[in-house]
Amino acid sequence: MTLADNNEPERGGDDMIAAEYVLGVLPNDERQGAARRIDGEPEFARLVDRWEVHLSPLAEAYPEVEAPASVKPAVDRRLFSGAAQSQAARQAGMWSSLAFWRGLAAAAVAALAIYIAVPYINPPAPVPETRLVASLAADGSDVRYLAVYDAAQGDVGLSHVSGERAAGRDFELWMIEGTNAPVSMGVIPVGSTIHLKISPELQKKLATGAVLAVSLEPSGGSPTGQPTGPVVAAGDLKNI
């Protein structure tokens, strides 16, 4: 069975393939073809993601079943033994640096763990949508940060994933809301995990859809109040 066999008049054929992929009904060869497109075509990946979002409430029907005790040690062996690490480095392909790969994976897992654990640690979240997350990256740059905005604390936590600033230069964090001029959130101190306090005026503007960006500036930050150097990483804030 191929798409050509199908006489359904089709607009948005890719969107239907994305839906079929998410639903899981495709035969093996077509499913693998769709999976390759997810990796290689951002447009198609977005269609898939939208269907995942639409259908994800159905997954509430999956019951929780305690996993066999043997699974966790087996996973640990595969991820954290020496052999596993070199295999993982190979699979990481162009990311030739093991340290870079491990740093990225660890930061991302830590971020996931935090988002997931927070409701358990601190049961009834007082206000919904008080935490927003952004992954900051840009083409042609190896600078990556994960940012978590905590409205209750008025604080942005930044996990430095990769990319160093040049000597005598600083990274500065900006918030861009719609078509407004960037507003500085401050120079980013050196460190793997850092926190920036956010002014109350800025807090009012920080919402889903706002873009966070990191630019390279002279030491001490932009002298003009606007970014003067290249944007080395950016991403939009999303609900957790």
């Binding site: 993601d49 939208r50 995942e52 979002v53 994800s56 997954a59 699974v71 996973v75 595969r78 991820l79 993982a88 699979q91 990481a92 990225l104 994976a105 930061a107 991302a108 897992v109 971020a111 996931l112 988002y115 997931i116 997350v133 952004a134 992954s135 994960l146 994933v161 991403g235 999303k238 609900n239 957790i240």
Partner: peptide, 22 residues
């Protein structure tokens, strides 16, 4: 779980909540 470890950074470009992404 091995996949999650390898691909965890990708969840940030998804509109799914973390648990839905997992």
């Amino acid at each position: 779980f091995v996949k999650i470890w390898m691909k965890a950074d990708r969840f940030a470009v998804s509109d799914l909540s973390p648990i839905s992404w997992l």
